[in-house]
Nucleic acid binder design. Structure first.
Lengths: 104, 104
DNA sequence: TTATTTAGTTACTTTATGTAACCTATATTA
DNA sequence: TAATATAGGTTACATAAAGTAACTAAATAA
């Protein structure tokens, strides 16, 4: 039985962050809107998981999907306001890693 | 093929954070050294996973395990210096969740 | 001896992740 | 027209991680 008394919002945020690839996708999108294949090559995720994560992040209101009916069609993903609100947090993780993770 | 060009230290940090329960265990230990069962009840993790995570975190140098040969034996877990260095990060996550995760 | 307590393990089920092949739509080329 | 290429995405299947519950070990108390 789960008798924990942790704030549900905090738990939810932790749940988002602790899903594999989420932070790296947001990190990648911090350099601007980009298409599927660019994110893929940028962080080394598989196509299947990238589609799944982008869909999740869209549902969370963190990522936005835009279709440009050009030829060929262009589909671009970008961060929403909520997504950009995570920038300081992502940079904080990056900073911490520089200070506390040793070079291998 | 993984052609990503992400800083290995950042990747490592993200790997730690994105392991389920890690952040909650550290969060719980921020209120001071405590034993297995207290952490367990505090965050609602199963005994099996808690043991596994504490072992991982000990190996990462984030958590310290101390045995007090009393009767019955008391085993206490606490944050190391490295563990405490994550406090601002954890608080940052908490703050973000208050600002951006809606009540359900 | 028997029971109790706490930490931790074992065995098994369910869910998440990884990999590769395939589908669709459109455009380009032979 | 037919074959090829490209990008986004899905399907099918294999492996790894997480969840659940029962069990073990060590030490002490009744």
């Amino acid at each position: 039985m789960n008798t924990s008394d942790i704030c549900p919002r905090f738990e939810k945020a932790v749940g988002i962050l602790s899903q594999r690839w989420t932070v790296l996708i947001i990190y990648q999108l911090l350099s601007g809107p980009q298409r599927n294949c660019t994110i893929k090559d940028g962080i080394g995720i598989s196509g299947r998981l990238l589609s799944e994560r982008l869909k999740d992040l869209e549902e969370e209101g963190i990522v936005e999907r835009k279709v440009y009916p050009e030829t060929p069609v262009r589909i671009e993903y970008s961060l929403t306001e909520k997504g950009y609100s995570m920038e300081p947090l992502v940079k904080h993780i990056e900073k911490w890693s520089q200070d506390w993770i040793e070079k291998e």
